[in-house]
Amino acid sequence: MKRWIERWNAYWFPETTTRELCLSRIVVVAAQLLLFPPVLEKHINYLTKNSEFIDPQVIISAIAAVFPRETVFTPSVFTTLYWVTFVAGLLTLVGLFTRPSAFVFALCNWIFVAHEYSYGDRHHGEALFCILLMCYAFSPSGDSYSIDALLRRWRSRRAGVPVEGPRRTDTAMWPLKFVHVLLAMTYFSTGASKLIAGGPSWMNGYTLQLYTFNDALNRGMPFGIWLAQQHALAIALSIFTILFETFFFVSVLLPWTAPLFFIVGIFFHLSLYMAGGHDFFQHIVLLFVLLLFLAPAWWRAWLNKYLAILSARWRRQEQAQQPV
């Protein structure tokens, strides 16, 4: 038992600085604010055109159980909630009262997404991204690169206490690792469900052609319409899809393979968008964040290697230009 706990701690709670977590906070919150904010007009339209929910999400049912629908689910309350979300997002981004702000920001976004998905429709794009947003509220996400950190240093200086450097802690990596594990689970679930429900026929080419044709035609994606007419390519892409989704979990078990899976994943989602208009932009950001901050050694090694080559080339050029 003790060995299992040690392994668990070694995986989820390694001692690191908080830099990666805090930089990821900035990228993720900026993406949510700029790329994926709630669309207020859409929510107001839902509120004015619907007198009741179709499939209310648990979060919405819980709110409706406490407050009557006609008092909370109104355009004015949602407009206020929208601005609260925006202010909390800005505070989380700059890192002022970071953790409470992150909690309010995540909660408001959860309410908006759950509200949108209470009218007979539901999609997957936002779920893991919103879970990561909430994780920032329960981790030291404001410890570096934040106004909170600047204020802490300023107070230390004023009190004559030596200013401490970046803190090392064992609770800075779990949010990124958690999202990695959840991504692996969800990809595996998607791949396995295709193999269970569709079997090998899922890779017959016709399946992918039909799905792509339907989505591309109704969403106006010319690349997808072309792709839907390429049978051999559809077979190859079906096999690739099953392999990628089913084996993404390998990136958790063998961390050295993770950068490869993250990069392939980014291109996988970009091609899904171009082919069928599947807008998993949040997953693209998540994979990019994991590539940058969960597997930094990989790209740093590449960067160092490239910079070393570049500086050696400059030195050679300088030597060649010097008079003999």
Binding site: P56, Q57, V58, R122, A197, N214, L217
Partner: peptide, 25 residues
Amino acid sequence: KRIWPILDWAMYKDASPPGPIETDR
């Protein structure tokens, strides 16, 4: 359908037999 953000991730899971590639708008 009701416990977002906890979701069932089975998407596009069913296979189609060989046949015409046809869709409606």
